[in-house]
Design a protein around this nucleic acid. Structure first.
Lengths: 346, 346
DNA sequence: CTGAAAGCGCTTACAG
DNA sequence: CTGAAAGCGCTTACAG
């Protein structure tokens, strides 16, 4: 009889519960719970019997039930633009490492740069009752998150600020990094410098443009409208924009790329040019030193951004009750050759 | 009174439940459940009252409770080596897309190529009762998963086969791709070809070595032990191995790299060489065409691997009851220059 | 040292 | 169309 019951409880798709273990070991439910959770107050003999039952039945605690009772899920959500983008790999990994040290798992999803999808994902994670969220926002209005934050979901925004709510934020120094990049080109004799960046609704794109303008202004130089092009990072769009700047009657002698993907496209465009054109890119990429000329970049520290964000998150979860913080991670200019090319004449 | 109760139920960290909504709307619990889940059989007027209560209280259904009752978590686990590795980005993204179409979230973690950590992660995901698992295994003994699979956790192994259990598997054609790569070098006149690959305990490393040996044998050529080096992908290790092959009295005239990271290191090593040495790498990488000479590779389709794996997984979850499958994803040789260099003389 | 009862927040199965 | 009761598999708070 007992054997039959046990047999059927092993059927495909059915798993033994603590109750089954308790029955088999001839103890109470709470005793099984004690053993499973390593709580004290169980005699060695009782413990052994429970362990045997656990092994025999192939019991594994159902954390869904545990989570419901305890109120904490020991998981955090990570919403980013695209898991396949190399910038987010190290960032995700860093968040994961910190989560791991706190015994938490990572649930993540890609927004594909779509605000509606970002919101859908974030709210799905809230419904799962993640303890916290790390969000690289696609949208610019996060009021939908306010009730969740008020209900205790620790939330940190990374790479771009939250829109219309206050929250912990970790950003790269886009403004300072861009200003330095352009100053670097100016120091190498350039006067007509083009900026090709991401869509203007993206915060970092605006900041990088501001850095560009500030550096030009500090050098007392005018900025021709034709030297600035913001838009998608599609190769075709970037290619067209670059060609326009390079084929103008007074062509730019240097280009500053607003991000990773733009930089790579510009490397391709510039190989076709006869006259050398200087290039500095925002954000480093793996083989930047292998291309020739090697590409000068303003490097961001994605792993540090992830670590910092996760650190802030767990501070909140451990009860830190302080106003939202905004951390800025410095960038670093790495001169490799392409940014040190001087203008032909002028 | 009611207001006080409501006020306190909004306290930081406390969230309203269906019961609260029911009380406020003056309906039964089940009616709230019907509205929240869009089930039929609710008058428009009742529905409106419930919706108002939901909005007023900021209610969001607790999926932890739902999951416990329904038995399915609508989440799948993805365990890979390192989220930050560019090979896994597109693979993860592809798995995520398929999961999304099935309404499932992705929980993932990195094993860091450590079998113990792989097991710990996988079992933690099983305790969370993920519906399925996509595993890029680090270890070579997965018997620990047998009870979970028997209990209904759909499991698919990707990139490397499962060890000591039967399970759905999606692999690249490492053997065929490597054989083709080496045949390509042979066709360009090489006779002394070196192979630098990953650690021999990794299945793909063994398969790629087998492809190399098969191609050499098919050409009737001997393989000198000094031409084969398996080990970690640390740049230093790869550098030393390559130098030994290149500085030998009878140096190799071509190198076949067993993976991505090895290829990149070899590009760096070969730039220092005076005599040109041919190179083919297993696995494509983003800027392979920008390096000079551009790098000839055997490309894997990581996204297709991810899609295929997730496809198999959801077939199982939808009840497919068939023996474990093994899908092999073809590779593609992309000639870009480095693999078409001919040996100096001979 | 051990265990019975209540409850976490939902859904299921039924009854009106 | 609507709702009260039971239950998912654990943990909590108590009592022995």
């Amino acid at each position: 009889m007992t054997d039959t019951a046990r047999g059927s409880s092993r059927r495909y798709g059915t798993r033994p519960t603590m109750k089954d273990v308790a029955a088999r070991a001839g103890v109470g439910l709470k005793t099984v719970s004690r053993v499973v959770n390593g709580e004290p107050g169980v005699t060695p003999d009782t413990e052994r019997r429970v362990q045997e039952a656990i092994t025999a039945l192939g019991f594994r605690r159902n954390d869904s039930a545990r989570i419901l009772r305890k109120g904490r899920t020991a998981s955090i959500g990570l919403v980013l633009e695209d898991l396949a983008d190399p910038f987010y790999g190290p960032l995700s990994r860093a968040v994961e490492e910190v989560a791991r040290h706190h015994g938490a798992l990572l649930i993540n999803g890609s927004s594909a740069e779509d605000p509606a999808r970002e919101q859908e994902l974030v709210l799905a994670l809230c419904a799962r009752r993640v303890d916290g969220l790390v969000v690289i926002p696609a949208g610019d209005d996060h009021r939908y998150l306010a009730p969740e934050i008020a209900a205790g979901v620790a939330t940190v925004f990374v790479d771009r600020p939250a829109g219309r709510i206050e929250a912990d934020t970790v950003l790269s120094d886009s403004f300072g990094g861009s200003r330095d990049a352009v100053a670097h080109l100016l120091a190498h004799g350039h006067r007509r410098i083009g900026f090709i960046g991401d869509q203007p609704r993206i915060h970092t794109a605006k900041e990088r443009l501001r850095g560009y303008r500030t550096a030009m202004a500090a050098a007392g130089l005018p900025v021709d409208d034709a030297w600035v092009s913001l838009g998608t990072t599609e190769p075709e769009r970037v290619h067209t924009a670059a060609r326009a700047m390079l084929d103008a009657p007074e062509p730019v002698t240097a280009l500053f790329a607003g991000n990773n993907r733009v930089t790579v496209t510009l490397v391709r465009v510039l190989r076709q040019c006869t006259a050398p054109v200087a290039l500095v890119g925002f954000d480093d990429f793996e083989l930047a030193d292998l291309v020739s000329p090697a590409v000068t970049v303003v490097a961001q520290d994605a792993a540090r951004m992830g670590r910092t964000a996760a650190g802030l998150l767990f501070r909140r979860l451990e009860g830190a009750d302080e106003p939202p913080r905004r951390e800025e991670i410095p960038t670093r200019l790495i001169a490799r050759g392409s940014g040190e090319i001087r203008p032909a004449h002028d």
